[in-house]
């Protein structure tokens, strides 16, 4: 099965990249952008199974995300 893991900074954690991109958009003439948060995603192809989603979540917690400052979300792709 194919899953996508989204990783982003937890709410409240400063996102310097998001802030810089927001500033760039403002300079470009989009003053209405109130907030930008950056993140990334990982596409994984893993063996099917009843616990596959839970296993991917564990992978995300152990490696893909830094749980001290980041949270993640797992999405099963069609």
């Amino acid at each position: 099965m194919k899953v996508r893991v989204f990783v982003g900074l937890k709410p409240g954690v400063l996102d310097p990249a998001g802030e810089a991109v927001k500033g760039g958009l403002h300079h470009l003439g989009y003053p209405d952008v109130a907030s930008v948060r950056c993140g990334k995603f990982f596409d994984l192809d893993v063996a099917d199974g009843p616990d596959a989603e839970a296993r991917v979540a564990k992978m995300a917690d152990q490696l893909l995300a830094n749980p001290v400052i980041e949270s993640f979300r797992v999405e099963v792709l069609p």
Partner: peptide
Amino acid sequence: TVQVGDPFQ
């Protein structure tokens, strides 16, 4: 909550 640094700022 961990502080995050922004060297650019």
